[in-house]
Design a protein around this nucleic acid. Structure first.
Length: 762
DNA sequence: TTAGGCTTGG
């Protein structure tokens, strides 16, 4: 009989497994080996509905977890069961059962990347000579209940249909939560506010004697499924409260993330159609909710001393000196060598009141999220004690509290990878330079500032806003819908264009078009062409400009006219003067633009001066040529300039000049494509920058060798040629995702924003 | 029972 139930008595099967079978551990399962006489044992954590393949074969998929490997990153594996065995298994199997698969075939799992399970799956069928043993406590019960659908059918109530005094099942997206804390009664308490696509809101007060029985919510946006929650009216609003038999599942709310329920319960139902519900809620939340919450800090928990203080690290160095709780070496509970190594990187957090019992129960080495920590700067006039303190004050307002994350959590994996990537030798060397901070104090403000600068070197970029955002892994971002904004920490693997001058474009903010910067030869040709039209003497010397004209002595006998714009009927100092020129060469115009405030190349028509072609600059100022958008501009007569000239102190700002002339100016921008990588994935992000990122004006770089060198050095620092990925520096950036739809093709793009190169990088 | 989101504090 291929599927057998083995009754368990005192923890052992009544009937032993056949003696020829040898146990195989999850971590030893490898492709290319013969598993005819091997068996794998695990706990059933997920059952999919029994289905039929195209050829009519019954097919049943279950997920087994290897409880002996619960600490390792991958501890579950897909089991694909075919034919009669599929049907038999579907009848008897229940979540939490111990399941033994013998004589299976091993094949590469095509879904491993998505579901995060083992890279291989087990294939099981009668034809392959497989056998399945299910270890159960009560065979009689099992046979009695064996039915095509083992799972009871649950009905879920939308949040806008809740009625006082009922007990319901529901789904919701977490809008707010307080991580579990010890209540003043006998239980742990957690408060959770949910929303759903009905747009109704429900705040639930959940009590459980066992911390594990409360929902495992790690962040706002997580999705929960509550079974048997009691609904009551309180202060005119519906309120959820735990009732007997309350049970919950929690899911990551990120679109595309693996759908793995978080629960302490070994017995739960989760079917295919419920997966669909999660996917729908994720999609709804992505486009209808703006997920934001109080700042949460994410730490590796290293030590606690006294009964009130935690010592933690998140892989970075706090940019300010932090207050250290005075502690005797004998009071340290953590791993001493590690604590010593990290002594200048860890921070101490003082924990108060209701958070103390939970803090005391924490295991060293766990990963914590601490919500609503208060940072306190010691008073500035006491420079000797300049430092930052971290307090987790009493109470649970705004979700203040401590959450413990399991190792399987993707954010934990990301943090772990980051911690592993930190070069401790480097950090400690950097520390030894500044002995002042070893005792946690700074003697003056300058020390503090220079310290701050050094710490910023940890990332070669600096964020100019939204510092309260938490980092998101690139994989999570790639799996999410746009538009959203993220803070990331990544390395620059490569960038385009490699020839930096090619990164400069002209951009019209009105029609969003990009244009190549015309080269000097184009301008020269336009000037030569316009010089064939002689200046019209009738247009010289008006009320608002004075004109001079002369003929070159060379063979060409070229006529040049210069019109100096007057102010209060007077000519100004050259450096304040705007002039218009007809018949000049590139070189002459260039020289004039160095000496005079502004130069506008023009040509004569019958009754007015006019601007040249749009491929020529409408204005030259200093080193910069200003161009107009051909598409968006509606040039006005040159006379319009007289209104600016009449102003008391004409500033001759290019934007003002453009405006009166009916020109929509093009702006110089850097456009680059950065390929960013972190431990979780790779992502192409566009840099669209006028000046902020490089702290170099895009308008000036083409004519300034010094700035070109500076930019080259900056890029060499961000992405040093010939270096391995490990040796590249970290970049902290904000990026935003956005959708581009081109016909039927839809794509998500990413752009860097509110990020700048650290001051001391170049 | 507990808390019933909405802080300022050692």
């Amino acid at each position: 009989m291929p599927v057998q139930l083995l009754k368990i008595i005192k923890g052992e099967s009544e009937t032993p497994l056949p003696s020829h079978l040898q146990k195989e551990d999850l971590k030893h399962l490898q492709e290319g080996f013969d598993y005819t006489n091997k068996y794998f044992q695990g706990t059933v954590v997920l059952c999919y509905p029994l289905t039929k393949l195209r050829d009519g074969t019954d097919f049943f998929k279950v997920v087994l977890q290897d409880l002996n490997n619960s600490c390792s990153r991958i501890n579950s594996i897909n089991i694909l069961i075919y034919g009669k065995m599929a049907e038999d298994c579907a009848k008897v199997i229940r979540h939490g059962d111990t399941f033994v698969v013998a004589g299976f075939k091993l094949a590469k799992s095509p879904t491993a990347r998505e579901d995060g399970r083992h890279g291989c799956h087990l294939e099981v069928s009668e034809e392959a000579g497989s056998a399945i043993y299910v270890r159960v406590n009560q065979i009689a019960n099992r046979v009695l209940h064996a039915a095509p659908s083992v799972a009871p059918k649950y009905v879920y109530t939308p949040l806008n249909h809740l009625k006082d005094g009922t007990v319901v099942n529901l789904y919701g997206i977490v809008k707010f939560f307080k991580p579990p804390y010890v209540s003043k009664g006998t239980d742990y308490c957690s408060v959770v506010t949910l929303v759903d696509p009905s747009n109704a809101k429900l705040t639930c007060t959940l009590f459980r004697g066992n911390l594990d029985s409360l929902p495992k919510i790690y962040k706002i946006g997580d999705i929960v499924r509550f079974h048997r929650i009691k609904i009551r009216e309180y202060n005119g609003q519906m309120q959820g409260i735990t009732s007997g038999g309350f049970a919950s599942l929690t899911f990551d709310g990120t679109v595309g993330a693996p759908i793995v329920p978080r629960t302490s319960s070994k017995l739960y139902t989760f079917l295919g159609e419920e997966q669909k519900t999660i996917e729908e809620l994720r999609a709804w939340a992505a486009s209808n909710l703006s997920i934001s919450g109080p700042a949460a800090f994410f730490f590796f928990f290293l030590n606690h001393f006294g009964f009130f203080s935690l010592q933690v690290w998140d892989g970075t160095k706090c940019p300010y000196p932090t207050w250290k709780v005075p502690v005797e070496a004998s009071d340290l509970e953590g791993e001493k060598a590690l604590l010593h190594q990290l002594r200048n990187l860890t921070v101490d957090i003082l924990v108060y009141d209701n958070h103390v019992p939970l803090a005391k129960s924490l295991k060293i080495g766990s990963f914590l999220r601490i919500y609503s920590i208060r940072t306190k700067q010691a008073s500035a006039d006491n420079a000797d004690a300049s430092h930052v303190e971290f307090h987790l004050h009493g109470g649970t307002c705004y979700g203040r509290g401590i959450g413990v994350l399991p190792e399987s959590n993707p954010d934990v994996k990301e943090l772990k990878e980051f911690l592993e990537s930190v070069d401790l030798a480097d950090s400690q060397n950097a520390e030894s330079v500044s002995s002042v901070e070893l005792d946690g104090t700074f003697s003056n403000v300058t020390d503090l500032q220079s310290h701050l600068q050094r710490c910023q070197q940890l990332s070669v970029t600096v964020l100019t806003d939204h510092q309260d955002l938490n980092n998101t892994g690139l994989r999570t971002i790639l799996n999410s819908t746009a538009p959203q904004q993220y803070r990331i920490r990544a390395k620059l693997r490569t960038f385009k264009p490699q020839k930096l001058h090619q990164s400069i474009k002209l951009y019209c903010s009105k029609c969003n078009s990009l244009k190549e910067v015309p080269d000097g030869d184009d301008f020269d040709l336009i000037l030569q062409d316009s010089a064939t039209t002689a200046p019209n003497p009738e247009l010289h010397n008006t009320s608002w400009y004075g004109s001079v004209m002369w003929t070159t002595q060379d063979q060409k006998q070229r006529k040049i006219a210069i019109h100096f714009v007057k102010h209060d009927e007077m000519l100004q100092e050259p450096e304040h003067t705007l002039l218009m020129i007809e018949g000049g060469t590139l070189k002459e115009i260039w020289k004039l633009s160095r000496r005079f405030k502004c130069v506008i190349p023009v040509r004569s028509t019958k009754d007015d001066l006019e601007l040249l072609d749009f491929s020529a600059p409408f204005l030259l100022q200093g080193n910069v040529k200003y161009y107009g958008c051909k598409h968006c501009s509606t040039p006005k007569t040159i006379k319009s300039l007289s209104s600016l000239a009449a102003e008391q102190r004409p500033s001759w700002e290019p934007t003002e000049i453009a405006q009166v002339l009916g020109i929509v100016p093009l702006q110089y921008v850097f456009i680059m494509k950065f390929t960013l990588v972190d431990g979780t994935g790779a992502l192409n992000a566009y840099l669209f920058d006028y000046e902020k990122f490089f702290q170099i004006p895009a308008s000036e770089i083409l004519t300034n060798n010094f700035l070109q060198q500076k930019m080259q050095m900056t890029m060499n620092t961000l992405c040093p040629p010939g270096r391995k990925l490990d040796d590249l520096p970290w970049l902290e950036c904000f990026i935003k995702s956005y959708n581009i739809t081109d016909g039927t093709k839809h794509q998500v793009y990413y752009q860097i924003f509110d990020t700048t190169i650290a001051e001391d990088v170049v």
